[in-house]
Nucleic acid binder design. Structure first.
Length: 411
DNA sequence: ACGGGCGGAGACTAGACAGC
DNA sequence: GCTGTCTAGTCTCCGCCCGT
């Protein structure tokens, strides 16, 4: 199943199968040795099928055991956690055990103490995970560490944690899942040509930044449309690619301000931040692994891209259109810039209020929807065909016989 | 005080596609 | 062909820090 439906297999493993071993791990002391074959099976059969040809080393296996929010994939190792879980649950059930041994049928266990103990266990587990991550960061190559950092951003792992329901647009086919995992960790991607259409040697980093084919420019289209459709639920006068008011000699602070009369942004909506005022949004999706961003921290890269957008549109929109401007900056892996986080948080608030739905659910759905949009944009860059298109063919006036003979097409 | 290294901000350019 | 838009890359300037 991992070979034919890797997304479903991954989801079944993380949401269901691995929890079925919990009871065994919690109740049988010293079981870890007996779980060794299970770990071998995960490592030697399940993971190679799930991730296609990529060979998982010790450090990478350790990385995959971490939860998605820490940059892992949540594929735990039953063997390694068994002893720890056993001890935890002996502690957790100790008061109940004592009462059973003493045959005390009247006394009640202190639920608050158990709750506190559960919290402590959870805290300890999390700090151990962070410790393991820090160790891995020291061992893994810099590129992978950078990838882990991008994978930890808000929204970068939602595609991993949601159920792959096809009808809701949340499922990936076998190639998409393998590609998504490879992009997440910077592993080599199968089936991409050795040379790009632009003539440069082709690798994932080049593909995500090569302008040939126009995918780098059009990849923000899906995010724009999704954002506009969300805004239509709660705002009036929502439009995509709205034109800004033309300038009549107004002086702009920055030289990089877009002063074209036909200048337009990606989305606008009325009454989003302030009643009656138009809010303008412009989307940028940048590649954190691009050479110009690799030298700077992820936070700085987000800020830089936000500032560039603000310089281009901020003052003009504020003074001429008298609206507000919000740059919506994303990384290709799904992370959001601070202003984008703020924007979608506000959008979730308004949607939750209007639809009478819990805010947390609206936020979760929104992040998931955006996560898949960004992932599809990345697939577009990765798998889109880059070639020099033939000049337009006049089908109506085509001499079929001449073409067939010239091209040596077998009749 | 001075010089070098570093990083951030800003300006500018390159190269791609879309639309007119 | 021109213009607009997009992202990446490069360069310059400036401020800060540190060593001499």
């Amino acid at each position: 199943m991992a070979k034919t439906e890797p997304h479903a297999a991954y989801s079944a493993f993380t949401h269901g199968l691995q929890h079925r071993w919990s009871f065994v791990k919690r109740t049988i002391p010293g079981i870890s040795l007996l779980l060794k074959p299970l770990e071998n099976s995960i490592r030697n059969t399940f993971l190679p099928a799930l991730l296609r040809s990529h060979i998982v080393g010790d450090d990478e296996r350790a990385l995959l055991t971490l939860p998605p929010r820490l940059g892992g994939m949540g594929i735990t190792s039953p063997e390694r956690l068994a002893d720890e879980e056993n001890l935890n649950f002996i502690n957790l059930t100790s008061s109940l055990t004592e009462k059973i041994i003493a045959q005390d049928a009247n006394g009640e266990t202190d639920q608050n103490a158990i709750l506190e103990l559960k919290k402590t266990i959870s805290r300890n587990r999390q700090s151990a995970q962070v410790e393991r991550l820090e160790h891995l960061k020291g061992v893994l190559p810099d590129v992978t560490v950078r990838k882990i950092h991008t994978a930890q951003e808000t929204g970068a792992s939602n595609w991993l944690t949601c159920l792959p329901i096809r009808a809701k647009g949340f499922s990936l086919n076998k190639q998409e899942f393998v590609d998504a995992a490879a992009l997440r960790y910077g592993w080599p991607v199968e089936g991409i040509p050795k040379t790009c259409a632009c003539g440069s040697p082709s690798d994932v980093n080049h593909i995500m930044t090569c302008k040939k084919g126009g995918f780098v420019c059009i990849r923000h289209g899906e995010v724009r449309d999704v954002t506009a459709s969300m805004l239509r639920e709660v705002c009036r006068d929502v439009s995509t690619e709205p034109t800004l008011l033309p300038l009549n000699g107004e002086h702009m602070q920055y030289r990089t301000t877009n002063t074209a009369n036909e200048a337009r942004v990606d989305v606008s909506a009325r009454g989003f931040w302030t009643r009656g005022q138009r809010a303008f949004m412009d989307i940028r999706i940048f590649d954190p692994m691009a050479a110009c961003h690799r030298r700077i921290s992820l936070e700085a890269a987000h800020q830089r891209n936000e500032q560039e957008k603000i310089r281009a549109y901020g003052k003009r929109i504020q003074h001429v259109d008298q609206g507000s401007f919000t740059p919506l900056v994303f990384t290709t892996s799904g992370g959001m810039g601070p202003k984008a986080k703020c924007f979608y948080s506000r959008l979730a608030d308004v949607m939750a209020e209007k639809k009478h739905q819990p805010r947390s659910h609206v936020v979760a759905w929104m992040r998931c929807r955006l996560s898949f949009s960004l992932l599809r944009s990345a697939f577009l860059c990765l798998r889109g065909t880059r070639y020099f298109a033939p000049t337009t063919i006049d089908i109506a006036g085509l001499d079929y016989q001449a073409r067939v003979v010239q091209s040596g097409i077998l009749v």
